[in-house]
Design a protein around this nucleic acid. Sequence first.
DNA 1: CGGCATCCAATTCGATACTG
DNA 2: CAGTATCGAATTGGATGCCG
Lengths: 123, 123
Amino acid sequence: MDKELLDMDACSAHHLAIRDTMDVLSGKWKIRLIGSLSFGKKRFMELIGSIDGIAAKMLSKELQELELNGLVKRTVLNTKPVTVEYELTEYGYSLKPIIKEMASWGMQHRERVIRAMSVKEKV
Amino acid sequence: MDKELLDMDACSAHHLAIRDTMDVLSGKWKIRLIGSLSFGKKRFMELIGSIDGIAAKMLSKELQELELNGLVKRTVLNTKPVTVEYELTEYGYSLKPIIKEMASWGMQHRERVIRAMSVKEKV
DNA sequence: CGGCATCCAATTCGATACTG
DNA sequence: CAGTATCGAATTGGATGCCG
């Protein structure tokens, strides 16, 4: 058995898999969006409120992309004025382990991240 | 106990944690870069070869940011011409669970991702 | 080899204004 | 409320040339 070769194969498969995942999650807000929706249904305005800094245009755009990929379901309710609800599909929920690891990492390394960011801002 | 309030706190902490993680991993290539380095040391040209589509300029830039954040260590070897090695620090390795989940998700959903991407390209 | 500098094109992002 | 339209700014990316 050629260990080197096996490693190369593993590396390359790993790599393609990560690329595929990144394709779906590309964009500045998608991961945070999914993180927010992983707590349940939310309306457009609720999402704007819960995701600090996002503009309506970007929210709209990234939601559309997530919907196209089948990760998010959009429901228009018959109210006046219109209400629209967004929620994760089952497919979307399958991303939860990733989101969970990201939240967990962020909590464990919060201090260091913030310190590093504040250094950067001085530049 | 106010369940609603507890949920809100959990949600907001979760959210800040994800935002911190995304701050560190922001940029089109960082996650794939870390994925590639998680298999061990690599030189600049090896990274260009292993990360399909990246330009030298972007590789250089994102490596610098990762180095600034302490996730990657850069070592210049005394060869002629120069050889430079990049490797994850211990802090960088702490991201491995995230990378692992991303690779795992990508492998499980590869077909669906590719199908969705090919539909998009027709537009 | 491992970069940085420059120029330029393409894409992404954000603020504001407006609509049903 | 839930968007779309539009414009300008910022980021990204490629090509080329230069340097130690």
